[in-house]
Each structure stands twice: as C-alpha cells, then as structure tokens.
Design a protein around this nucleic acid. Structure first.
Lengths: 198, 198
DNA sequence: GATCGCATGTAAGTGGTTACATGATTTA
DNA sequence: TAAATCATGTAACCACTTACATGCGATC
C-alpha cells in the first residue's frame, strides 16, 4: 500500500481534530472539496491501515439511538509521518480537463456544440465562485480566531482567483467562437442537424 | 471496457490525422500535455479495441531500418462515435491539488516549508507560461492556416490565463505567509529544525 | 410511508501508471 | 560504446469509484 496522497490527507485532517470516518468525509466535502475528494471506499480502509501501523489510535464511542462511532486520533508517530510528508515537495500531477479536450477538437464539432461547451464551463465556474464566498463566510463564522483559519482561507482564495480567470477566458473564448462561425453562416441558421461537421 | 475519456481523446486525435500509437503519444506530449496525458499502457490497448469495434482501421506500413508502423485511420463509424461524444456535455472532475492540500495543513507545518511549497508552485507556473508561449510559436509555425489551429490556440490561452492568475495568487500568498510568521519570530532565526511545528 | 442523516464497511470493477521486453539505427 | 530515437506491446500493480448491505431515529 502506498496511497501516500489519500493517506496523508486523512492524517492531516485528523491532526486538525480527532474524528470518525464519517466525520472525515463531511470535512472533505465541506472544507476541501474545491481541490480534493475522498470516497468512503478509500477512507475506511485507510483508517484501518493507519490504525494498524500505529499512526492513529482508535476508540469506540457508544451512542444511544445512533450507531457507535469509531473515533480516530493521531499519535506521535502519525505526527512524525505527517511532518515528513509536509516537508517533502508536492507533486504537480497533470490535470485532465475534458472541456479543453473537446474544445481542442472544436473543428471536428459544430459551433453550437462548442458554444454550449464553454457556456456550461462558464456556469460551473460562476457557481464555484459563489461556493467559495459561501464557504469563506461559513468558516469565518464557525472558526473565528482559529490558527488553521488563515491557511484555509488561502486555499479558498486560490479557488476564487483561478475561477475568475477562467470566467474571463470563457467570455473571450465565446466571442472568438462566434467570430469563427460568422463568415460561414449568415446568422442563426438554426436547423443544423446534430451529426454534422465543418 | 468504458474508458470513454481516453478512448475519445485518441479517436479525436485520429480524426485530426491518421497515425500510429507512437504518433499519438508524441502528439499528446507536444500539443495537449498542458491539460491531458496518455500513457502507452492506455494507448495501445485502446487502439486495439477501437480497431476491433471498427471505429478505426489499421494498416501496416513497412519501413526499412525502422520497425513497422501500425497506422490507424478513423472510420465513418468512428466519426459518428466522436460526434456523439462531442455533443455530450463535458464532465468536471474534481482536480486534486497536492500543493493546496499541504497549504491547508499549513499550521501543522512550519513557515519555511510553507514558503518553499508556494515558491515551487510559483516556479512551476512560471515555466508553464513559458511552455505556453513556446507551444504557441511552434503551432503557428508548423500549422499556418490550419482550420484546427484557432481551437488549439484557445486551449493554450486557457492554460496561460490560469497560470498567470495562479502566479499572482502565489505572490499574494507568499506575503501573507511571511506576515503570519512575523509576530512569532523576530526575523530569520534560520536554525529551525525540520520536525518542528507551531 | 418515504426519505434523510447518522454510521461503518466491503466487493467488484475501472482507469490508469510503471516497468519491462524486444531490437534496429542513429547520434554523441 | 553508451545513449537516444523509433516502435509495439504486455503484466502487474495501484488508486479510486460505485454500488451495495445494514439499521436506527427523526423529519417531512
């Protein structure tokens, strides 16, 4: 098992506070979903593995009415492992962008499809920006004065700054696509069949 | 086998020109590496599968001195499949950003490590911008007047616009990190041991 | 009576990378 | 003579997702 990324992501979250697999999933969705994701299928086996290698400890919390919780807490060894990972340089993996892939094949498609493609991409980034604002408000409300907060806000800022840039690119690109089309068609022929090219 | 993404990526590249698995790999690296990647371990089995399902045809090209080439050409069925895929909306997958993950845990790390983290991220994006400029020049030189060119340039523009935004974010963030640190230390204590926190 | 939230987990499958095998020719 | 380029392919492995199973209590 390597799983270095997910493993350390979970370890890091536990360093910011003990919790269950269910808690981890909630935190991922709420606080870091703009740049990270984890599924239960990863989280539970990794927690088991972390416990087996003594990087975290586990204790059962009985609850009435609700199922028992397995609460995990980082150990000194876990801290050391986290610190090692944090001091290593981060990897930049090539991010696959399906929208750009389709746009790259734009000439194989038709203008309407291309416009729809970028319009959806634009909508998505608008929503992202809203989501960032929402999350920022929430975090500031729920964690005032928290020493972790400034770092959290920096990641939100990254998301927002990037989304804004992409938004502007969308506007420019929508214009370019319309211009590319203009010489060919005399304005809105509409009845373009779906499976047509050029 | 689903492989919808890689499969259609390869199909699309073949639509822009016939070629071998080796050619595909070259094109991926040269033209779309800023937002896509494919390994031989994917390419060759997918080409085999595309040929088996008649979406592409294959013919052997004998070469003297060099090994034979398996040249693949998209068929009418392949075109239809590509068109179907192009008219479907693109998916936005959550991109995992390890740098942001580590920054999110910034308080669990130390300021020097955080600064190094963002500095490396900044360097990477500077290089990316250079790479974009380089690629743009190359494509304009090698494919003047090509009908595909405008779409290719749009994807490069996306990369550049995004990288520039991230670059600015890096500068702001580096300052924020330095400011966060200032109240704690009276300027450059230097001998901070690696495995220290807070 | 349906669905949502809490809570833990597994099995099967997918999508992808890495490393390896082969081997000729050309370049450094 | 070492390494890079051309060229095709496979096997093993890994990371990750999806779907499923279970079951209680609260809300709609």
């Amino acid at each position: 098992m390597k799983q270095s990324k997910s493993k350390h992501a979970i370890l890091g979250l536990l360093a910011q506070g003990s919790g269950s697999g269910y808690d981890i999933k909630k935190i991922v969705e709420q606080k870091i979903s703009h740049f990270w994701n984890e599924s239960y299928g990863q989280i539970y086996p990794i927690l088991k593995d972390l416990a087996a290698t003594k990087l975290v400890s586990r204790k059962v919390e009985r609850q009435t009415g609700k199922p028992d919780r397995q609460v995990y807490t980082i150990t000194a060894r876990g801290r050391a492992s986290l610190d090692d990972w944090l001091s290593e340089p981060a990897q930049f993996q090539v991010l696959r962008n399906e929208t750009l892939l389709k746009l790259f094949f734009g000439h194989e498609s038709d203008t309407d499809a291309n416009l729809r493609l970028i319009q959806r991409y634009r909508d998505y980034h608008l929503q992202l920006i809203d989501g960032c604002a929402e999350l920022e408000k929430e975090l500031k409300r729920d964690h005032p004065g928290d020493t972790d907060l400034p770092y959290w806000l920096m990641t939100i800022d990254h998301c927002r700054v990037e989304a804004r840039a992409v938004l502007r690119w969308c506007d420019v690109t929508l214009k370019k696509l319309a211009d590319l089309d203009e010489p060919t068609r005399g304005r809105k022929p509409r009845a373009t069949p779906v499976r047509q090219r050029r």
